[in-house]
Nucleic acid binder design. Structure first.
Lengths: 350, 350
DNA sequence: TTGAAAGCGCTAACAC
DNA sequence: GTGTTAGCGCTTTCAA
């Protein structure tokens, strides 16, 4: 396969009886050329199935029209929305998206970023495992937008899950819970730190006792430990760092015959696929991950296309674009989250 | 950001006091050059952080070291394993993976494939919406591997879900079910056709009555219709086209207060994330999607790198590679599936 | 062993 | 309005 040689601009020019430069002009800015000539060239190009060489263009312009999305784990449901968001936004602007899975490895991520330099115009870096310094260094060579990280001088998108968690604790307090556990995530997690900082004063304000457990790995397998810790702490509700952890907690409680939400309410975070499938369905913090992906792509494209060319205004999403414009100044964009109430939370019956 | 100009080969050559051609040789085949010179050049290159321009290489060689994965919907859990499989395999061989989401649209897919030509060396086409003719045409311009499609002359990977479905009906028959429904998938689905062709004789052999419903969209929202049809047909078990549909069926049965599996057993297909989270946990056909992804990438790389260079033998997966070698002849590779028994199937209590 | 030069496909001056 | 030419960064003859 892939036998037939692609026609080049030279072929088109020859077939149309013009010089290559004329052919080039006819195809890229028909205005700058005689209408008849332009038409003829375009007809020939179409007939021969001409497609301009991306490599040649890239070599000449230094621009590849390609953007990378770098993720620690493509199979983590949390990132699906992100992939879709960036993917859709980039396609709208004619960019190609490269997907890089770093397999949760710092080395792979650093290596990937290095190789990407020159291959892509920019990258969206999600849930990076790198240090601030490493990211800042990479940003010197490659237009970068970070998701859920704050790197001075680098634009970013932040999902305000801390705000959603505060909504969750308010929800629980309103239901009558007075002693609540937070099953925390990885010690290195920026989000986790933010949530603790938000939850402590919120608990105080609401007059509830907050017991912080963890750190736990944000996976189902950590659920049993978190569930046991919550039971041992004598709380009536546990807020999990994320849905995966919450799933594990629910499973453990189910196995122990603990009534949810009667004896123990459970909340998660992310509203990933499956959170409404578990029984009882999980009350969780929904974050606009897909919109965050769009936004990240927006920020990146704004940088790449130059601030004012308006190319990234193609879609009518005034909300996003308004934010994007503002964020060209490298202020991280904060995306609000909200609480989805389902069956896993209720009044404590004890 | 992205300010610092990338050093080119010329810079390296100048700094090392050699000609560009020598620098090129030193970096690409150190053997063909004086050892001292080679060392000096490499040292300079490292110091200056030289990275060869992918565009220039591509322009010269016509090879981009990039492969596309084309999917109808990145957010469909069925594809996650595929993404991961191709991604891992491609990275092992130093290829970059481009992810293209066609949004279930024939037009977008055709358009994507056309644009991809020249940008990538090849593509893995999964669950394509195109006609055989369209795919065959695209294969003339681009090295292609199809997943779950058979296109004469084009290598492919087939997930033998039909075999898994037969296991499922055998399982149900063994439990004592004598009248079973199959909630079929889209009429255009190649897999669906294969399954019907396999299920009918299997049912006959097992002495069970098979009632075929559908076509249904393979999404949760189609579940209620499928569930209602199964109930109306008086069967004691329903086999869903895929897990998403099965989820919808379970929800509907739950809402109607129908006991699962007592009154109705349910099976799915794919074993997607969440199938063990639903209650009752779903008995389903597990297909080795990630391995299929690896295999598809294997087949593609075998084509691209030429049959015998062994580059795709880097990993020790003798099983896969043995198959891959054989499949260079464009015989589709069939991946076996198996049944995962969970709580949603049991003896009929009526 | 090394250097000079050609050229991949394209665009952007710069003529005419 | 159109053609000629140079050159993006690299590899690869072909000489030296």
């Amino acid at each position: 396969m892939a036998v037939r040689r692609q026609p080049t601009l030279r072929d088109i020019a020859a077939a149309a009886g013009v010089a290559v430069s004329t052919a080039s002009r006819a195809l890229t800015r028909p205005g700058r050329v005689n209408a008849d000539t332009a038409e003829r060239v375009m007809a020939v190009a179409k007939e021969l199935g001409y497609i301009p060489s991306a490599s040649a263009r890239a070599l000449l312009s230094g621009r590849t029209s390609t953007v990378a999305l770098v993720l620690p784990d493509v199979t983590n449901p949390v990132f699906f929305g992100l992939v879709r968001g960036t993917s859709a936004r980039l396609r709208e602007s004619g960019y190609v998206q490269v997907l890089a899975d770093t397999e949760e490895s710092v080395e792979v991520e650093a290596d990937t970023l290095r190789k990407l330099r020159g291959q892509v115009d920019g990258a969206v870096l999600a849930a990076s495992r790198l240090t601030d310094e490493q990211i800042a260094a990479a940003a010197a060579d490659l237009a970068l937008v970070v998701v859920n990280r704050t790197i001075p001088g680098t634009p970013g998108v932040l999902l305000d899950t801390a705000g959603g968690m505060v909504q969750a604790i308010e929800h629980l307090a309103a239901l009558g819970h007075t002693r609540i556990a937070y099953a925390g995530g990885p010690a290195t997690s920026w989000s986790d730190r933010r949530r603790r900082e938000a939850l402590v004063p919120a608990a105080e304000r609401l007059g509830v006792e907050l017991v912080v457990h963890g750190p736990y790995s944000p996976v189902r397998d950590s659920g049993p430990a978190a569930a046991d810790a919550a039971l041992a702490a004598g709380v009536t509700a546990v807020m999990a760092f994320n849905d995966l952890l919450a799933f594990g907690i629910l499973e453990r409680l189910d196995a122990l015959g603990v009534d949810v939400p009667g004896r123990m309410s459970v909340t998660g975070c992310d509203d990933i696929f499956g959170s409404d499938l578990v029984r009882p369905a999980l009350t969780t913090v929904r974050s606009p991950v897909e919109r965050a992906g769009r936004m990240a792509a927006d920020l990146l494209l704004a940088r790449l296309d130059g601030d004012g060319n308006g190319a990234h205004d193609a879609d009518g999403d005034a909300q996003d674009d308004a934010d994007a414009e503002g964020a060209v100044t490298a202020e991280p964009v904060l995306m609000p989250t909200d609480l989805v109430q389902r069956a896993s939370t209720g009044r404590p019956t004890a």
